[in-house]
Design a protein around this nucleic acid. Structure first.
Lengths: 348, 348
DNA sequence: CTGAAAGCGCTTACAG
DNA sequence: CTGAAAGCGCTTACAG
């Protein structure tokens, strides 16, 4: 018999939440043993472990994250650092990260920032150090900033980088292979018979934009189609910049028969210009986007686009931070794939 | 002279972050005095306060939130509880909340949930109690759930409810006045000359849907227009449900000349059906949405819609939780307003 | 207006 | 495999 008077039902703790001391006392072990069980130490006899775990369940005991954090000198918080205007993308990464964090002791703290601001790295440092974060998820475009990662390394903060292409060792990367998604678009348009193509790219400073451009151009070249520089127009991943790029590409008589856009917002801009010019999609112009956002299926005709499994991406990034730091593993990859709708057909 | 050897420059603490003990020692006061300054106690002489604050700035001292939280028995975390599929809305509330939290000691922890699940209230309780949250922001539709609020009250958790209409005392509400936004739409359409109107509403279980419907119907009535029940079609705030509702309203020869939709997604559904039927917007059919999402300006013609200042809403909700519990204040209100684009004109 | 003691609920470092 | 002591960095309760 443990040295406590247990009646029927779970022990009453006068309405207050149980602490490690209550569990230790009720189980008749030291608090250090309870602590070992909490931290999954193998140095506990299995019958002791089972007895204590049963009691914890009955009492509904959950360790206090602040007390644990204070003793560990590290919190049970995962930070998500981002500078991305696309709401759906952000929310999907959050959902994915929370999928991975569910049933763990960790919670997600969000930290949007402005990577164009000169002191944003310092802002992230303050955030990480004040909260003693367990780790951070870095989303494009901040994930591409080596200075940010160097700072995190310097202060000993773990991170998981989501990026279009691998930027460092696999233990810290979730790679979305944007190059492959773009190549799939090139293959699809080529198979439809298009030879006279164009691309509206995102800002050259974004890895995603570069990867999508190079993936598209490279795959076309492999199929014998050379995309002239005049057919590659850089825009800003926004609707308005897509409009401006489309105006450049579609004026004059020498028009492309298909345009691949680095994201759906810019594709919506191309739609707008085509509509204004009386160019019918897909009869006179094929258009492909990237993201497969909800916008893609709201446009008319529904836009063919490259889908990214963003929620999976977030899940992998968070899962990576929960693993022991030493754990070796293969590169975390999320593969894009083309979702074919009604915005493309063979050239006129 | 304080009892410590200060050389030039900030005192060196061997690379480790300063603690309250360091500050107390360097300033020559007790840690309790430092603590009083941290907690803005008036019981500190102003010269003492200034000396200590200067030192804290020099050393870059920031109190440890976990240590404070452990002693306070309450964390420095604000939870955001939501069950809302609209990514832009969620992200905007988050930005707003973070605006209010900036330069405070608080951080934002996100907690999406599924309010249709029978144990979601229990899930929120676990979240709140484990993390000892300082307070939570409740976003529609969970903000409308009285059972949730009762639970939070029972466990002594502060909350701020965002809702279309006031549901309780002003100290816990941010009201978005959806009724007024819908009434503005009714006035606008009436002024354009429409008499034969229809509405696609959100689910009747949503307060926002009810308020928008009643606001629209009531304002029309005040202007002498009675909306028959057959002209009010309930849908699910989704694109697909908007399509189905539009099909019901637009088939047959007896069509309305204008449709007000409870959100932009459903308005996009109406656009789709109108396009399919060869009905031109706005020449043959006027359409108005609600939300003023980015979708509204991507559609063709650009959609007239009711804008909500969602970021302000989030800011107000978070600010409310930072105030002393006793602070009396007026009802926090966010006013909607109509953004006129190109989707309406006088009836044919 | 200021301070010394005890405590918040955990873990580390050490000993057995 | 288990435990007693000290400590993480703060605050509360009490005293002056």
């Amino acid at each position: 018999m443990p040295p406590n008077r247990r009646e029927d039902g779970p022990p009453d703790l006068a309405g207050k939440a149980a602490t490690i001391n209550d569990i230790a006392r009720l189980a008749g072990v030291s608090k250090k043993t309870v602590s070992r069980i909490l931290n999954r130490s193998p140095l506990v006899r299995s019958d002791t472990r089972e007895k204590v775990e049963k009691l914890m369940r009955e009492v509904g005991y959950v360790p206090d994250p602040m007390a644990r954090g204070l003793a560990f000198r590290r919190s049970f918080l995962i930070g998500m650092i981002y500078d991305n205007p696309t709401a759906q993308y952000i929310v999907d990464i959050q959902y994915g990260a929370l999928d991975a964090l569910r049933d763990s002791d960790f919670e997600l703290v969000v930290h949007p920032c402005d990577s164009r601001s000169p002191d944003y790295v310092a802002g992230v440092r303050r955030f990480v150090q004040q909260q003693k974060l367990h780790g951070v998820i870095l989303v494009p475009r901040v994930s591409e900033d080596q200075a940010l990662c160097d700072m995190l390394d310097a202060i000993g903060c773990r991170y998981a980088r989501v990026a279009a292409v691998s930027l460092e060792g696999p233990e810290r990367m979730v790679v979305t292979h944007d190059r492959d998604g773009a190549a799939e678009v090139a293959d699809y348009l080529q198979r439809l018979g298009h030879r006279d193509l164009a691309m509206v790219t995102g800002p050259a400073a974004y890895r995603s934009a570069m990867e999508r451009t190079e993936g598209f151009v490279g795959a076309l070249r492999r199929r014998g189609i050379e995309l002239p520089a005049s057919r590659i127009v850089e825009a800003g991943y926004t609707f308005e910049s897509g409009v401006a790029a489309a105006e450049r590409l579609l004026r004059g008589r020498n028009r492309p028969t298909a345009i691949f856009c680095g994201n759906d917002e810019m594709a919506a801009g191309v739609y707008r210009v085509a509509l204004r010019m009386g160019l019918r999609i897909p009869e006179q112009l094929s258009v492909v986007g990237y993201d497969d956002s909800t916008l893609a299926s709201r446009l008319w005709p529904p836009l063919t686009s490259v889908r990214r499994d963003t929620r999976d991406t977030g899940r992998m990034a968070a899962a990576m931070l929960l693993q022991p730091e030493s754990a070796a593993r293969p590169l975390a990859s999320v593969r894009p794939h083309l979702v074919i709708r009604d915005s493309c057909q063979p050239p006129p």
